[in-house]
Write a protein that binds this DNA or RNA. Structure first.
Lengths: 253, 253
DNA sequence: CATAAAATTTTCGTTTTCGAACATTTTCTA
DNA sequence: TAGAAAATGTTCGAAAACGAAAATTTTATG
């Protein structure tokens, strides 16, 4: 195996395992420890891994690995499927709002394939992900950062959002009642979401099936304000008829 | 097989395999290594593949460093030492501004030991780190997110910052001239930093020694506006005298 | 805190790969 | 088909990658 190939593989294997010793890597690539050290130092210089005595560790990109991020793992498959479907709905060069929610972070990752997007968001994780692409214009709302989930919330945030008129909004929520009420836990987030709803042409609701019977406190909006609802499950029949009445396009993956 | 055909095929096979050695390609096309080298160099010039010693890799599977990642890896030890010292200067329950910069992200990590801080920042990474603590109040400025480093910049950002009056500002910069001029690369960031300087009681400058002779374009501020300067090296004597004249406390780690 | 063990850096010689220059063959075109 | 242009092959000094051994630093342990 050539050096370039090995370097690439080391980055992946270290990222995957979290930590690799020189010895383990020696066995894997059948080169001397000396060569491995040179490789690891090269990669550390480039900021790809973190060098330690005896081996190397992956870099936690300061925005990952927060306790909150672990919640992202729940229902991962459903969320990924939803995210991919949502990404298909968004054309290149579109402008969109993205609000808080784990599903929305995965949506952000999927949107990296697009080009020329303009995104206004109150989700610092989504902003961080999307700002990796040079041809995206990412605008983050100002305000207080909620400690659990990196959401930016409050009245100042709502005012900020209201400056914009976007093509789409992609909204995640905490709960859905069968009568079509969309619920959240935090009234400050609700204000922001309402502003996004009011200032986007086409509103896309994303939610995995676990939201159907989840209790939440604050009424955020109503299904009648939504244009498209992407979900991984069949909705309760009462909700289905509410959607039908209001011309909501329901996409089940 | 003709050259054009071969070139086309090489691109595909490299993309498919991720990496191909000269030797493998020699066998595949039955030409001399020299010819393959010419081919690979041609393709690399056109940006179709990535050339390496012994072969070539596809563009995607590149281990190239983003400039930002690299900068973060540079001087890691100095930055950590500076960050720890800065954290000591900040009392519990203080309010502070934090601006852009890799050192400031490490400062944010160190501040997690504190209690009851109120932080206003235009650095999404710092915001993300600090928002992990429930007893912190983290406020992020709104505005456009710069793709290289997650900095939030611009006039709207400055206006946002100006709403606040804080105890401290922790400022990272791009360059320091010996006459005491503090420099940055981006005028949009400069506006934000100036606002922080003007609205904090006590201004702390953080910089590792590499900043002393770095050229940067925009004058951001002057050393006379700084109260405390934390650095890992001795400053040039001219700068030392400027600091003395202006009652700047210089802390060398 | 002193010592040993482990890991790392440094140095140096060997092998592999590279690139430039020139020779030869193939392809194109008038 | 003659001549030019492009592609390929050959040769050789330079550069890069690698392994081995010595010198140095870091870490563990009594």
């Amino acid at each position: 195996m050539k050096q370039a190939q090995r370097l690439y593989d080391i980055v992946n294997v270290v990222k995957e395992q979290g930590y690799m010793t020189i010895e383990e890597l020696t066995k894997r690539y059948e080169v001397t420890p000396q060569t491995l050290r040179r490789d690891l130092n090269t990669l550390a210089d480039k900021g790809k891994i973190k060098r330690h005595h005896g081996g190397a560790a992956s870099i936690e990109s300061s925005i990952e690995n927060t306790p909150y991020q672990q919640r992202k793992a729940e229902n991962q498959n459903a969320k990924l499927a939803i995210a991919k479907r949502v990404a298909q709905l968004i054309p290149n060069n579109a402008s969109l709002f993205i609000n808080i929610g784990t599903t929305n972070e995965i949506v952000a990752e999927q949107l990296l394939q697009h080009q020329g997007l303009t995104v206004v968001t109150n989700n610092i994780y989504a902003a961080s992900i999307l700002s990796q692409k040079q041809d995206f214009s990412v605008i983050i709302a100002g305000g207080e950062v909620r400690f659990q989930d990196g959401g930016i919330i409050g009245e100042a945030t709502r005012d900020f959002i209201q400056q914009f008129r976007m093509d789409f909004s992609i909204l995640g929520i905490s709960g859905i009642e069968s009568n079509g009420a969309l619920l959240d836990f935090d009234f400050r987030e609700v204000k922001v979401s309402q502003a996004m709803l009011a200032h986007a042409q086409h509103n896309i609701l994303v939610a995995d099936g676990s939201k159907f019977h989840r209790q939440a406190m604050v009424e955020q909006a109503h299904m009648s304000q939504i244009n498209t609802f992407v979900c991984d499950r069949e909705a309760p029949s009462e909700l289905m008829s509410v959607m039908k009445q209001n011309d909501v396009r329901f996409i089940k993956i």
